[in-house]
């Protein structure tokens, strides 16, 4: 290690002397003196840089943080309250939506679900138990009447059809019962003319203030059923 290098490393970092440096100054009085000089200078520099810290700076720092965190907490409480209110509001809306809106997207979906739900109650080999007169009694609620019977009417009664009162007729079909629903025209639920799932198919007809829906299995001539209903029904004002 040459002279210049020694001076350089002592001046750039007086406290960080490595072994090579210690070795270089061990037997050199001039270098030792230089090291002492720089150490003394460094002490002076450290002393000069060590300017007095203002009284109470520590307390001021703690105070400011306490105030800041207090404010932060206040605004946090406000945010939390707002969030709780929002959640409550959304929950209210959801409950409202679930309780008072149609569960099914359209008439067809509901009709199929209804038929599936009641399928076990009806067998296809029933006897005609409903007379034309009693059927028309019930039809009066929908301001309509049948001029004649068609097919074998096994069952006729009021049903709830997605929240509205409807008349549910069950006829004997070729292999499974055919369902006819007469229900008031309800704007809340979408009208579909044709619908089907893997087993059932159906058609809807819209009259002035009623919908008539026919649902049967895939083998059933639904179009024909619909035409029969259309022909035999008359609407009063």
């Amino acid at each position: 290690m040459d002279d210049l290098q020694v001076r350089r490393s002592i001046l750039s970092d007086p406290k960080g002397r490595d072994d090579a440096l210690n070795e270089a100054i061990k037997n050199d009085i001039a270098k030792q003196k230089f090291v002492q000089e720089i150490d003394a200078l460094d002490d002076k520099i450290a002393q000069a840089m060590n300017i007095p810290v203002p009284d109470g700076l520590y307390d001021k720092l703690i105070l400011r943080q306490t105030l800041a965190s207090h404010q932060q907490q206040k605004s946090k409480t406000r945010v939390r309250l707002a969030m709780a209110a929002s959640v409550a509001f959304v929950m209210g809306l959801t409950v409202n939506f679930m309780m008072f809106s149609s569960t099914y997207k359209n008439l067809g979906d509901y009709a199929i679900a209804h038929v599936n739900h009641e399928a076990s109650h009806f067998s296809n080999n029933g006897q005609p138990t409903v007379t034309l007169a009693s059927l028309n009694d019930k039809m009066a609620a929908f301001k309509g009447s049948f001029n004649s019977t068609f097919g074998t009417l096994m069952f006729a009664d009021y049903c709830h059809f997605d929240g509205s009162k409807s008349l549910h007729l069950v006829f004997q079909g070729q292999s499974s019962p055919v369902n006819v629903f007469i229900l008031p025209d309800d704007k809340d639920i979408e009208f579909v003319a044709n619908f089907a799932n893997d087993k059932l198919q159906g058609r809807s007809l819209n009259f002035n203030h009623s919908n008539i829906i026919v649902v049967g299995d895939k083998k059933e001539p639904i179009q024909q059923w619909q035409d029969r209903v259309k022909k035999s029904i008359t609407w009063s004002i």
Binding site: R8, L11, S12, I38, I45
Partner: peptide, 8 residues
């Protein structure tokens, strides 16, 4: 290191 050297 150079700057420290020059500073001192």
């Amino acid at each position: 290191m150079t700057r420290l050297f020059r500073a001192r």
